[in-house]
Nucleic acid binder design. Structure first.
Lengths: 227, 227
DNA sequence: TAGGAATAAATTGCTAACAATTTTGGATTG
DNA sequence: CAATCCAAAATTGTTAGCAATTTATTCCTA
């Protein structure tokens, strides 16, 4: 595929993924091709390709044949699976990062913390969210396994959608303090402590989610049949 | 996208992935759209979409703009990353599988072993390879995390390509004995032993790979400059 | 007025033709 | 004879328009 098209598709994918992550496009929202063409100033083929990708790769869009695309509504089961998978990968990334600690890598971690801190100080909400997410990518890159980094990237996107869907108080993000403590443990080479902190960090995010209640797909028969 | 097209694209993807996994399409082989259309009796658009997917999702195809697609030639670094990532996921799947042991799941594992055994007894080479790969998918399904299962599926495909690329004696597969021992440990609920066996199992596969030598992209300058 | 069939509108799916790019092979020239 | 350039062939990239499907509306009937 031509570079131009690929770049364009990527642009649309990111634009949509961002909008979904930030809850500007709520779960369930219809994504009509013609509307997207108009709003994004894009070719319909590119829009379609982008939707395909968001559906098959990132799973944040659902496509029903002949009926079009809409923002996905992951089930509670899927949400839990995504978090569990992410936890597993994050945990091993921590271990690899410690094993792979060079001077350059130490610097990258510290710089990332600074960026997050700067965003908070300046009160730049949007930047805060972005940098907070970037922290996990930086950690993956420090770990040095590109495959894990890719897998994590996908899971982070899906996580964002899930948070948008299931979070009660909007926009509780990763806390900078937890990132700070995590980096401290990593730089100290304390694997156990670092992994423990990462587990806690993942748990903290999930704690604000309503992954228990919620109707979803009620079994009407079971709910309504005679007692 | 229409069901028909999706099914067709999936067919092409699987056909190509199989051919790549089984080394019928060697790494580096060119995949001309017109040829594929002719051989597969497919629409060019479907062929293109399939190639896109194989490139962006599974990474077993490389697409160069305006120059077409060819079977990927993962670097040694990438090969190692894929194996490391797969090892991590397989390891955690073992743990989840043990925690998720129902009668039904025990049965699935035993049945899978029977299938593999049957293929070996009948000397069905092709079936052996397939069932040997399926074992890991079944284990993932027993573990019950669909996201991990998906991630693993992708990594298994990539692993196959890597084996095709870097294996000296062709077609050394997973050994049934190792699968057997693994299932024994899982059914016994012995997490440590099961994880140890899985680690060993992954190591066994890698042991037959030439992941050290091989030129790849030699640094000509470093190699040829005056001593 | 409720139900349902027929029609119209909107939307997605598909294809074939055309455009752009790269490769190949040969002719030309120093 | 080697190198360079040019044209033809092969291959990929792009687009517009039509076909098929679904959804909404209208109108008819009991």
């Amino acid at each position: 595929m031509g570079t131009r098209a690929q770049v364009e598709i990527k642009r649309i994918v990111e634009r949509l993924a961002d909008a979904i992550s930030e809850h500007r496009l709520p779960p369930g929202a219809r994504l009509t091709e013609a509307k997207l063409v108009e709003v994004l100033g894009a070719n319909r083929n590119h829009v379609r390709a982008a939707l395909q990708k968001l559906a098959s790769e990132y799973k944040v869009v659902t496509i029903v044949p002949n009926r079009g695309a809409c923002v996905a509504q992951p089930t509670i089961k899927e949400a839990k699976d995504v978090f569990a998978a992410r936890g597993i990968i994050e945990r091993s990334i921590v271990e690899l990062a410690i094993a792979n600690l060079t001077a350059k890598n130490r610097n990258r971690l510290l710089k990332q913390l600074e960026k997050e801190d700067g965003a908070i100080r300046r009160g730049e909400r949007q930047e805060m969210i972005r940098e907070s997410g970037n922290f996990h990518r930086v950690l993956a890159q420090v770990a040095g396994n590109e495959v894990l980094d890719e897998l994590l990237a996908g899971l982070i996107t899906r996580t964002s959608l899930i948070i948008a869907l299931y979070q009660e108080t909007p926009n509780v993000q990763c806390s900078i303090e937890e990132h700070q403590a995590l980096v401290d443990a990593i730089l100290a080479g304390d694997r156990e402590q670092a992994q423990h902190l990462m587990d806690e960090h993942m748990a903290t995010i999930q704690r604000y989610l309503l992954l228990d209640e919620r109707p979803g797909e009620v079994d009407l028969r079971a709910a309504l049949e005679e007692p």
